[in-house]
Design a protein around this nucleic acid. Structure first.
Lengths: 208, 208
DNA sequence: GGAGAAATGTGAATAGTATAACAAGCCTAG
DNA sequence: CTAGGCTTGTTATACTATTCACATTTCTCC
């Protein structure tokens, strides 16, 4: 219980899904829920939900289930999103712009705090509260704001060198939208978003 | 070998990653590669790559490795992306627009062929070659073009009803960008893209 | 106040995945 | 032609994850 090193990464990966569902239940003014109901909504077995949660403590009550608000707050603490993380976005194309405009980060613990692009034509452009900065200011600005998370939205050919620069600046978590696997030093985490890969995963199952 | 029902879904999920890497190697004019080299690039053990591929046949040669172009074509066939799939996008906000503009789908087997939005102010807008259509035309247009894949880029509150409508129209694969788990009938596949969930997965490991 | 229904947390059992290790095949170099 | 070095496909092993099943607790209702 609470021994962090022992908790499987796959379990951590499900917590945000639980958080999402709990957030929804709060909006619906549901006060209590059960592992069964949660599982039903998420397509996950109730046993798995109970076991996942049991890694972190005892959050429920027999016969009653889980207090939605309480479990929500506990999971926010566990995932460390009971605070606001600043993020940088590198690459201000259509995708980078969509990310910069996205209103959904705030409620989930994140805020876009810096924008970078290599194209001089984009540097200086204002997006919301922010101004697009040149790559030459990346290390300085990320250090200044103590930004530890970055999103990479540049072409695949640029992704590795951008990642290197971000790591040099002290970024410890990368969300990579470029369709390429990047290499980072130990201690830096990477997650990938590749829509085409998801689509290809599904076409396998489609009948021709 | 080739007994489709027996191949684990997790293996299918890795094939697009292999495809991505092979595509890159083709661009680099590499003629041969090995499971070791591929694994190195992808952070996957060579044994796993060999085992994954062995589900589908024997694509390599001992002592030599894999012919990059050949393996690439084989995987494209297996994933059924050796053709072009038409896709619909529902929800033409910043994200939907970015998806509609994205140039990367074409090379990986997909083309955006229809755009829909519930907002009358957006209906009629032209994006590239396409015109945004009203939701009332969704079923008709998807049927007409025989579209079988859709991307959902609407707010979470609308995602389930949009999914229902898409399924009614005959769509069999959904890529859901809304941060909510949706329910679909058996035979319909769903994949999720939730950047905030990925970020929350990583913040767990960041030191406060 | 007690019976019955509902739900948790968890150890045991099952199922699924990944790694290790090696025989067999292929290529190169001399 | 042969020795030596690589690399595959695969079997055996180890590891990880999920589900089952139940003792225990809580709540509701009469």
């Amino acid at each position: 219980m609470g021994n962090k090193a022992a908790i499987p990464d796959i379990v951590i990966g499900r917590l945000p899904i639980y958080l999402r569902a709990l957030n929804r239940m709060i909006q619906e003014n549901r006060e209590y829920t059960s592992s069964h109901e949660l599982g039903e909504r998420l397509g996950i077995s109730s046993a798995q939900i109970r076991k996942d949660l049991s890694h972190f403590g005892e959050f429920g009550k027999q016969g009653t289930g889980y207090n939605v608000r309480y479990l929500y707050e506990q999971l926010r603490q566990i995932l460390k999103v009971d605070r606001e993380w600043l993020m940088a976005v590198v690459g201000i194309g259509d995708l980078g712009r969509a990310i910069a405009h996205y209103r959904g980060f705030q409620a989930r613990g994140f805020r876009v705090a810096a924008l970078f692009d290599a194209d001089p034509a984009k540097v200086g452009e204002r997006i919301g509260e922010l101004t697009v900065l040149p790559m030459s200011q990346l290390v300085e600005e990320i250090t200044r704001q103590n930004i530890r998370i970055a999103m990479i939205a540049v072409p695949a050919s640029e992704a590795q060198s951008v990642a290197d620069k971000l790591v040099e600046a002290g970024v410890q978590a990368l969300l990579n939208y470029a369709p390429i696997t990047i290499t980072v030093p130990p201690g830096v985490r990477v997650q990938y978003i590749d829509p085409a890969a998801h689509l290809q995963h599904m076409t396998y199952y489609l009948t021709p």
